[in-house]
Amino acid sequence: MIRAEPLIEAVGLSAGYHGNPIINDIDLAVHAGEMVGLFGANGAGKTTTLLTLAGEISPLGGSVSLLGAPHPKSLFKAARQGLALLTDDRAVFPALTARDNLRLGQGTVGRAIEIFPELEEHLDRVTGLLSGGQQQMLSLGRILAAKPKVILADELSLGLAPLVVKRLLLALRAAADDGAAVLLVEQHVPLALAHADRACVLARGRIALEAPAAELREHPERVSDLYLSGSRT
């Protein structure tokens, strides 16, 4: 059930680099139990949005709230409050075993294996020898085992086969069903829409479309038309 108060919210948010805005006047909220897809062409501002919500980038304007309070303006402090950020670079330690990678998280190895039982037979392998999909399961499993309240996931499917992507999305969907607020940037739009509750599409640094995922599954051209309308470089 979606709470009235969002767990993470941006109001009039503008952000960018070296004082130059990439996103402008973004209003975006994600509630407990909700999975929201954030889509857009390359350069539209998706990663900038996620990094600003996480606290890695300071806003140029507007505000961000986390768990109903002003954002602590630091990824480290936000993480301590229950925010998790998953980037596209598979945040694992390749020289350590899969088991030791999981031990570095706030959850238990057993909980991570419950989420991704496929990893159990690889626990004592050096992580650098695992496939890209296994490494991403390891990274996401370490995050989900800690049961974060807010999950920001940026292109977790990059370079992975669709079957692996579906497996990762199912795990995120389960986390949302368990009460987390999930915001997902994803290149596989149809797959993401199949698991999301709602979707927002960025175009030229602004939210050009927000709609229920079910509606966009029926009319995918509404998303593709915005992709073709152009993006920032």
Rank of each mutant, 00 (worst) to 15 (best):
A4G: 05
E5M: 13
A10V: 01
L13S: 05
L13Q: 02
L13N: 07
A15L: 10
G16I: 13
H18V: 10
G19P: 05
G19T: 01
D25G: 15
D27W: 07
A29T: 08
V30M: 02
A32P: 00
G33W: 10
G37W: 01
F39Q: 06
G40Y: 02
G40D: 04
G43M: 04
A44V: 12
A44W: 00
T49L: 13
L50G: 08
L51S: 12
T52E: 09
L53C: 10
L53R: 02
G55N: 00
G55I: 00
V64Y: 03
V64Q: 03
S65T: 15
L66N: 00
P70T: 05
H71T: 02
P72N: 01
A79C: 11
R80A: 06
R80M: 08
R80C: 03
G82W: 05
G82H: 06
L83F: 02
L83W: 00
T87M: 09
D88R: 09
D89L: 11
F93N: 08
P94G: 06
P94A: 04
L96H: 08
L96T: 07
N101I: 02
R103L: 13
L104P: 09
G107Y: 05
T108I: 13
T108M: 13
G110Q: 12
G110E: 11
A112P: 08
E114H: 05
I115N: 04
F116I: 10
P117Q: 13
E118M: 14
E120P: 08
D124I: 14
R125H: 15
R125G: 09
L129G: 14
L130F: 13
G132T: 12
G133W: 09
Q136K: 03
M137D: 01
S139P: 03
S139Q: 03
L140M: 07
R142F: 13
I143L: 08
I143W: 01
A145G: 09
A145S: 12
A146C: 10
P148E: 05
K149V: 04
K149G: 02
K149Y: 04
I151R: 02
I151N: 05
A153I: 01
L156R: 03
L156C: 11
L158W: 07
L158S: 05
L160E: 06
P162E: 12
V164R: 03
V165S: 11
K166V: 14
A171C: 09
R173L: 11
R173Q: 14
A175F: 07
A176P: 11
D178N: 14
G179E: 00
G179M: 03
A181N: 03
A181K: 00
V182L: 00
V182N: 00
V182S: 00
E186F: 07
E186K: 06
Q187A: 07
Q187K: 03
L191G: 00
A194W: 10
A194R: 06
H195K: 15
H195Q: 15
A199Y: 02
C200N: 11
C200V: 14
L202V: 11
L202H: 06
A203Q: 11
R206H: 12
I207R: 00
I207C: 08
I207F: 04
A208N: 10
A208R: 12
L209M: 13
A211M: 07
P212M: 11
A214L: 15
E215Y: 10
R217Q: 15
E218C: 12
H219R: 15
V223R: 01
G230E: 09
S231P: 07
R232C: 12
T233N: 14
